[in-house]
């Protein structure tokens, strides 16, 4: 029997992996992968909590919504990345320095 702490541990590891990817990688597509990891960690948490703590369907429904919205976000994000690539011929985050910050 897999218990709640194991699920939480796995999702925490996923979350940390996502954070590390976002901070360490300079490739924009890799950063978007990191975002997906974090979203999946959250979805796993919702599903685990709803299975073990409260027996209603709220958490499952939120997980489904997270999956759908993550897909939408990735679609728009990748479209913008392709635009950026066509203009700059690079998907390195350090090349996005046109705007002063």
């Amino acid at each position: 029997m897999i218990t709640l702490p194991s699920y939480l541990f796995i999702s925490f590891v996923l979350f940390i992996c996502g954070l590390v990817v976002m901070i360490a990688r300079k490739n924009i597509v890799a950063i978007m992968l990191g975002i997906e990891l974090i979203l999946n960690a959250a979805a796993l948490n919702f599903a685990a909590y709803t299975k073990f703590i409260n027996q209603n369907l709220d958490g499952h429904i939120i997980s489904l919504f997270i999956i759908v919205i993550a897909a939408a976000e990735a679609a728009v994000g990748l479209a913008i990345v392709i635009r950026f690539y066509q203009i700059k011929e690079s998907i390195h985050i350090d090349d996005a320095t046109q705007l002063q910050s």
């Binding site: 975002i35 959250a42 709220d58 705007l99």
Partner: peptide, 28 residues
């Protein structure tokens, strides 16, 4: 303009992910 969109979507994705992770523990 495309750089603005890129920055917006990256920051937006990251903050939405962090918010969801916090929300999941609040739900728990």
């Amino acid at each position: 303009s495309s750089e603005a969109g890129l920055k917006y979507s990256l920051y937006g994705g990251i903050s939405a992910g962090l918010m969801l992770f916090g929300m999941s523990h609040m739900f728990g």
